[in-house]
Every structure is written in C-alpha cells, then in structure tokens.
Design a protein around this nucleic acid. Structure first.
Lengths: 240, 240
DNA sequence: GTTGAAATTAGTACGAA
DNA sequence: TTCGTACTAATTTCAAC
C-alpha cells in the first residue's frame, strides 16, 4: 500500500494525459502549505489561516484529497524513540532485466522506509531503519544479497538528519516559476527546521563514524557534475 | 483545538539525560501504527481501532506528543501535482570546519526537502524538489557552489520513487527475526470521505499484533562492504 | 463564494472498578 | 492504570444569502 508509481496515482485524470485533474491555484497551495505543517488542523482553523470561508475550505480540502494532491495524512514519528536508532542508505545496482523482481522483494522488507530509482553509478537507493548496526548487516547480506536482481550494494550510515521538510511546495520559492532567482517568501509558514542534535548512534553503535575525508576535487564553478546513468538507462540529464 | 501548539520539546526528561521519558509499550506502538497511516483519525476512532477506551487514548495520545515520539502531523503531498516534477539527490562534500555554515545555508534553501549527514565518500546527502532540470543546475552551480563550506558535489536524478512508508516502526518486523513475510497492511481508511472528514473508518480489523521486535543481533559483521570516509569510490562491483 | 444556525462530534473532568 | 459516563466546547453540515 505504499507503492508509488510514476504517474503518481491518477484518479481524476484521463488515460494518456498525465496530470491536471485539478487546477491548483494559489489558495490550494496555501492550503497545502498549512496542512503539511499541521496535518491535524481543523478545517475551520485552516480556513481562517488561509483567509477563506469555512465552506470553501471544506470544498477545497475534499477536492485536494479526491484529486490525489494530498495523498494521505501521516504522523512523523521519532524513530529513535520508537526503537529504531540506526538509519542507513543502501545503494543498489540492479540487473537490468530484473527490476520487477527487485521491486517485489522490496515490498517484503518492512525496514525499508524509502526507495528511489536513480541515475548515476547505482540504480536505486533505499533507506532503512533498524535497531542496530548488526541488523543493517543482516539486511544487506542475508536479504538483499539473496535477491538475484541485486548485483552489488554499497552501504552508508546516516549520522544525523539535519533537516526534513514535510513536503516541498512551489510556493516556497515564491511565484511558481522555473529556475530563476527566488523572491522573498510570501506567507510561507516556513517549516520549522527539524531540531538537530539527533545522533544516529547514541548507543555507541554508530558504525564506522567520522568522515574526515575529502576527495580533493574542488568543484569547478559553473560545471555541474552529473553522474551518468548506469547501463542503458538514462536520458534525464542533459539540459545543463 | 487541533493546533500543534504543544511544545514538542522535552517534558518528562531529566536534565542531562536525553532519553526515554516515556516507556513505549505495545499499545503505544499500535497507536503510532494507526497514526502514521491516518494522521487525521479522531481519537475516538483511534481508541476503537487500538482497543482501548477513549479516555485512555487521549492520555496516551497526548503523552506521545508531549514526549516527542510523535514529532508532528503532516500531509503527504503529490509533488508532481503540486508542480515539482523533478527530484534530485545531491551528495555534498563539506569542509570539515564549516559545518555550521553549511547547515545555516541549507535552511535558506526551500527546495531542499531532506538532508542527512552520512558516512562514506560524501558527507551529506540532500534531496531537492524543483520544477525542472534547469532548476537543479541552478541550485547546484549558483547556490551550493557559492557556499564556501561546500567542497564538491555530485548530483543524481530520481527517476521513480518506488516506495515510501510513512515511518518504519519496530512492530513492522514482528516478534522474531524476519523472514519473508508480507506486512499484511490493514488498509488504512485513507479513502475518500466516508462521512466526517476526520473519520478513519470504523473498527477496522486490528492490525498485526506485532510486538516490539528485535532483529537477530548475533550476526557477525563480516563481508558487508561499508564505505569508509574518503576512500575512493573506485571499487563498485562486488558480489556480496 | 460567503455567512449563520442546527446537529453531531470532540475534548475534558471525575468517580468507580 | 484504565474504563465509563456526563458535561462543555468545538467542529461539520446544511441552509439561505
């Protein structure tokens, strides 16, 4: 039930046409802005905060949900408090003919919180949350490695999560536009920055810590270093 | 009063010791389980679904929030629908004396949805959502590259987000070590409005009564390939 | 798209098991 | 602690403007 798909789950859209089942105006975005920071706000309070009538707020609220612009409401849980103190990223190289199998296996792994298919050196990145480092090891060697679709993995620990915004919205950038200079934030109730100081290894099990290293290569200004796609799947990174 | 005005800071914690202000029992986890899939469920419905009284549910609900186990409630938004069709990961190498500056600059970038400090070749990974590919380029070259703290970057595009779970919980893993077992998701009442906007569907089947689980901790750290700091990324191929 | 009133529900308090 | 109930305040719905 946590599956996602490229088209982001259409409901009101016609086949063959990705996208707009509902034209989102500034008010819609404002609603989303409030809702992403306080998913439990009452519609009445929401209306007041957005500056519209309650009935209007109800209508739009329902429309956003029915349209799929709001996918669901969720509680952000402190995973450390919940007993999952270790977070790791596993970069996976997948045999290109076995994507389906790979995805199917992923669904069987409850410790996986997020998985994205990427360009670059690897094919996918998965984020896992577990109780201890040993569990990461078990996950990688016992489970991932046993999937034929998995050709190679590379694991990295997360030492701290500096920032997590509920969901980025275009309004954060001012008038929804492309790449140009962002004007000042309007009424963007800027996301309260996630508190720092949450280490991934309070139990001392932080694994290979430290990142003293430097790869040396200075960034060549004006030149962005895109990593090419691995083996026959790419096509997203020109336009630079 | 559904405002999130409650302070999410410590309340039950003693000074000098960050840690368990609240012992989470199976009921607490069950509450979290429901809440992460339907953050707008009413406490009454939550109580029914968890199998406790309404008063008890209110008490625990507030305790979880005050304790910080629940950090906040948020709406998951379809970023494509919202106008942000491009997602990218930027791996950043940071000059080690300038972390503070780096973090400060991050807060100024609204397109950043997530940032984690990692072990491995790079020091941080940031996830950005923008309208188009050019915006990624602008972001990396105009903004990131201008931060003195940033020594180098590496960018990768996300082609598809295969799965995102609201938040992983220990109960997902069941009591014992995991094998291959589907989590048996008891479909959340996230469907369309079935009555009041905050309802979650009455008395769904109780979820899997998983208890606090621990993954087998006696796995010897062996052949897993942890990426150390600053080691070159030369070797990529390795069958685990 | 807005306001106002009715019906329902949510949140709180308190005694009992 | 947890439950059950009664009471008060708030929310949602539905009407008319």
């Amino acid at each position: 039930m946590t599956e996602m798909s490229r088209n982001s789950g259409q409901e009101g859209g016609q086949p063959g046409r990705i996208g707009i089942g509902l034209e989102l105006d500034a008010t819609h975005l404002k609603i989303l802005e409030v809702l992403r920071e306080n998913g439990r706000i009452s519609v009445a309070a929401l209306a007041e905060r957005v500056g519209i009538s309650r009935a209007n707020a109800y209508t739009r609220f329902e429309a956003l949900r029915a349209d799929g612009a709001i996918k669901r409401f969720t509680a952000e849980i402190d995973h450390v408090r919940a007993g999952l103190g270790i977070t790791a990223l596993i970069f996976v190289t997948v045999r290109q003919q076995m994507w389906r199998q790979f995805r199917a296996q992923l669904a069987q792994m409850p410790e996986v919180e997020y998985c994205a298919i990427t360009t670059g050196q690897h094919d996918a990145m998965i984020q896992v949350r577990v109780t201890d480092v040993a569990a990461v090891h078990a996950m990688v060697t016992d489970r991932l490695a046993n999937i034929p679709a998995v050709k190679a993995t590379e694991t990295v620990f997360i030492l701290d999560e500096v920032l997590r915004r509920p969901y980025v919205l275009p309004s954060d950038r001012g008038p929804a536009r492309s790449s140009r200079r962002p004007p000042a934030d309007p009424a963007a109730g800027s996301a309260k920055s996630t508190g720092p100081a949450r280490s991934a290894g309070p139990s001392g099990a932080a694994g290979p810590a430290g990142s003293a290293g430097s790869t040396g290569a200075e960034v060549p200004l004006g030149m962005m270093r895109f990593v090419g796609a691995a083996e026959g799947r790419a096509q997203l990174q020109q336009d630079v």
